[in-house]
Design a protein around this nucleic acid. Structure first.
Lengths: 205, 205
DNA sequence: ATTATTCTTAAACGCACGTTTAAAACGGAA
DNA sequence: TTCCGTTTTAAACGTGCGTTTAAGAATAAT
C-alpha cells in the first residue's frame, strides 16, 4: 500500500471504462492492463479471474448507491406519490460522480450491459447482496401506490428500470443523434430530467 | 437448392436461437454449426463472416416487420392519440411468429442485445436501411401529439423503445422471477399487454 | 540486518476462436 | 456420360484469449 493510486484501483478504473464502452466479453484483459499500465498477471492476482473483476467493477458503485438510496427514502417521512420515491434515486446516482468522473453514466451503462449479458448472473448477485435495500425501495413504492397489486408493481418497476438502464446504456449514441439532428448538446442530468416524468406517468396511471 | 430446408436457413435458425439466449460475442460458430447440423465452413461460405451473419439474422425479421408497420400505420386514416400508433406495432410484431415459432420474443431480444452491443452498429444499420419506414412512424407519432417538440418526441420514442427492448431482452429472467415469487406463468403477449399502457402514459403526459 | 510477506513481472501454457484451403460430392445442362 | 458451377467437407491455420508459473523486487515485521 505505498502507491498513491494502487494497482487494484488502476485496474478497476480502466476495466470500468472499457467494459462500459465495449462490453464485458469484447474487452480483453490485455486491453485492461495496457490502459491501466499494469502487468497482465496482476488482474488474476488481485481479483482472481476476469469474471470476479466484472462483479467488483459494478459493486464498487452498488455498495455506495444502494445504501444511499435506502437512507434517502427513509429520510422522507410521508410518501404519497411514486415521483417522490423515484426522485430519491437522483442524488445518490449523481453522487457516484465522486467515485469517478462520469461515473453515473458509466455505472448505468454497465448495469445495462450486465442485465442483458450473462443470463441473470448480475441480477442474482444484486438481489441477493442488496435484498435489504431493495425491500426498502419496494415498500416505499407500494406505500406510494397502495392500489397496485404486487405483480403490477413488479412489472412497472422493471419497465422503469429497463427504460433508465437502456437509455443510459445507449446515451452516447443518442446524444450524438441529438447533436446531429438538433444541433444541441445533452447532459446526463438533462436526460434524467426527461426520463423521470416519463417513468412516473407510466407508474402512476 | 435441393434440400427442403436449406443450409442457409438452418444456420439462420440456429444462430438466431443462440444469439438470443447467449448474446453475439458469447456464441461461437462451432456452437451454431453444431446446432444447425452443418459444416463449420458453411457459415463463411454462405454469409462471409460471423458479423455478416448477425446482421442477416436480425434483418430477416426487420425486412418483414418494418414495411408491415408502415403499411399498418398508413391504413389508419385519422390518427388522434399515440396509443393508436403504438397499437399498429402489435400485429406486425406478432406476425413475426410466421418466420419462426417464438420469433417475436427472439427478435426483440436480439434487438435489445444488438442495441447494447457494439457501439451503435446495429442502430446505424437500421436507421439507414429503413429510413423510409421510420419516417412514416415518426410522422404518425407527431400527428398524434402535435403539441410535442421534435426533441421531446425523439426522447420519448427512445424511452419507449428502451423499455420494450430491455423488457423482452430480460423476459426470461423476469418470467422466472414471477414464477418463483407469484407462482404464475407469463406469456410474451401478457407482457406486451402490460407494457403498452405503461409506454402510452409516458408518451401522452 | 534478517526474515517473512506482499506484490510485480516476463514468459509461457493450453485452448477456443473465426477463417482459409483444397479436395470431394453433388446437381443440372449439354 | 461428360462437363461445369455450386455446395459441402475435413483439416489446418494463425491469432488472441484467460490463466498459471516461478522468479524477482519491494515492503513490512521481527
Amino acid at each position: 500500500m505505498s502507491r498513491q493510486i494502487t494497482t487494484k484501483t488502476k485496474i478497476l478504473n480502466a476495466a470500468e471504462q472499457l467494459f462500459a464502452s465495449s462490453g464485458f466479453a469484447e474487452t480483453s484483459m490485455r486491453q485492461i492492463t495496457n490502459k491501466a499500465d499494469v502487468n497482465l498477471a496482476s488482474v488474476n492476482y488481485h481479483f482472481g479471474s476476469k469474471k470476479d473483476l466484472t462483479v467488483e467493477v459494478i459493486d464498487r458503485y452498488l455498495s455506495q448507491l444502494m445504501p444511499d438510496i435506502a437512507t434517502e427514502i427513509e429520510r422522507v417521512e410521508s410518501i404519497s406519490n411514486p415521483e417522490q420515491v423515484l426522485s430519491c434515486f437522483v442524488v445518490p446516482l449523481m453522487n457516484l460522480e465522486q467515485i469517478n468522473r462520469g461515473g453515473t453514466t458509466r455505472f448505468l451503462r454497465l448495469l445495462g450491459r450486465g442485465y442483458v449479458d450473462a443470463q441473470g448472473h448480475l441480477r442474482k448477485f444484486i438481489t441477493e447482496t442488496y435484498s435489504k435495500e431493495i425491500a426498502v425501495i419496494m415498500a416505499a413504492l407500494h406505500k406510494s401506490m397502495p392500489h397496485l397489486s404486487e405483480q403490477d408493481l413488479f412489472w412497472r418497476v422493471h419497465f422503469s428500470l429497463g427504460t433508465s438502464v437502456f437509455t443510459l446504456a445507449a446515451s452516447d449514441a443518442l446524444t450524438e443523434i441529438v447533436r446531429a439532428d438538433f444541433d444541441t448538446e445533452v447532459t446526463t442530468e438533462e436526460i434524467l430530467t426527461r426520463l423521470l416524468p416519463f417513468i412516473s406517468s407510466g407508474f402512476a396511471r
